[in-house]
Design a protein around this nucleic acid. Structure first.
Length: 235
DNA sequence: CGTGTTTGACCTGCGC
DNA sequence: GCGCAGGTCAAACACG
């Protein structure tokens, strides 16, 4: 069973930064209100407690008070970075339009017409040349969750292998947004990485979709957390 | 040569 | 319907 909070456990240079303070934006039908699984007690990887906020197309923001961690163990994010998982607020929503749509019970017809089906089928014509043939693309909404960290590096090592497929300068920001796709198998998980306009030290990472496989790193590197720990986070 | 990145063009959805 | 902005494609390029 996928869990948004679990999926945001981020493996960073042998340290878990499981983020209990995560903004979850979802437009599909899995139950975001389920309790997040508690992180390993006493785990030094969890930086403080916080509030998980889930937005659901059928409801308002749903706060998850958590008591994970003691706040005394800021996770390390590699040699060049300090990492503090930031608590999300509504104003922090990466995409305000989506947040509004998610909170609007009456205005989901177009964008959220697939609510209730978290396994979506793409009509994307693979391999078709864009210029020759008009593409019929269905707008599909995968589960999304995003978090921000204070980091010098843009791309955080989360154990998966990503391929960059685009970069875009977003309006009113001086930093471009990068688009990545998981390269393993036919995994369609994507992530966006951008820097917060108000505070360029903050990296906003947005995952979209679910991995149908394990992270590639932990099979190779014995120094990573135990497999049971990984299973806890990546199921 | 294979793999990953860059980047301009194109596509799509949404607001007006 | 139009224009804008975000998202994606794919050719060109870089690099090991």
């Amino acid at each position: 069973m996928f869990h948004p909070a679990a999926a945001c456990g981020v493996l960073l240079n042998q340290a878990w930064v499981g983020s209990p303070e995560i903004m979850v934006t979802s437009h599909i039908g899995f139950d975001l209100r389920a309790s997040p699984p508690p992180p390993p007690l006493g785990s030094p990887c969890f930086a403080g407690g916080g509030v998980v906020v889930a937005s659901h197309p059928r409801g308002n923001l749903l706060p998850f008070p958590t008591n994970h961690g003691d706040g005394n163990h800021p996770a390390q994010l590699g040699a060049s970075s300090s990492c503090n998982i930031w608590p999300w607020t509504a104003e922090d929503a990466l995409n305000k339009r989506e947040l509004l749509a998610a909170n609007n019970n009456n205005n989901n017809k177009k964008r959220n017409s697939i609510v209730g089906n978290d396994c979506m089928v793409s009509n994307l014509s693979i391999g078709a040349t864009r210029k020759k043939k008009p593409k019929v693309r269905k707008k599909l909404r995968e589960p999304r969750f995003c978090f921000k960290t204070m980091s010098d590096v843009d791309v955080l090592d989360d154990g998966y292998k990503w391929r960059k497929y685009g970069q875009k300068v977003v309006k009113d920001t001086q930093h471009p947004r990068s688009y990545y796709r998981c390269t393993q198998g036919n995994c369609r998980v994507k992530k966006r990485i951008e820097r917060l306009a108000e505070d360029p030290r903050m990296v906003i990472t947005t995952y979209e979709g679910r991995h149908a496989h394990s992270p590639s790193h932990h099979e190779e590197e014995s120094s990573q957390p135990s497999s049971s720990m990984l299973n806890l986070f990546w199921q």
